[in-house]
Amino acid sequence: MRNLNTVLFFLLALLTLPARAQDAGEKMLDAARCYACHQRTDASLGPPWQAIAARHASNDAAQKELTLDVLARKIVSGGGGNWGDVPMVPNQWVSIEEARAMATWILNLPAARN
């Protein structure tokens, strides 16, 4: 039931406390071992999250929603296509709701400072 509680907590947080939802997304990235392949600002095995945010930056609400959906599904199912010839691993214990929280945190990262 812990897993479910996490999801319920997140859904509640998303409705009422946007700042806490952001924190929840970051915590989920750690819990799902995403740091094995990704860092916030630096390239490691996979692209840095900041670069993902920059690539998908958009002011269009519909486009943002679509990106969120694509990234969430990529987190769960893995696969390749956008960042070279090394596919991403699937994360099948991550629920789609958790993946959306993670993707929201990633897409809201501020751009890198030069």
């Binding site: 094995a36 392949c37 390749g80 010839d85 090394v86 596919p87 691993v89």
Partner: peptide, 24 residues
């Protein structure tokens, strides 16, 4: 997933990908 990438150099793509998995 690796096979579906249809990389220009499939052996290199496989080697890079499985190397990534080892590190993961």
């Amino acid at each position: 997933s690796i096979a579906d990438m249809h990389a220009a150099d499939p052996l290199k793509a496989r080697t890079d990908s499985w190397n990534m998995i080892v590190k993961y």
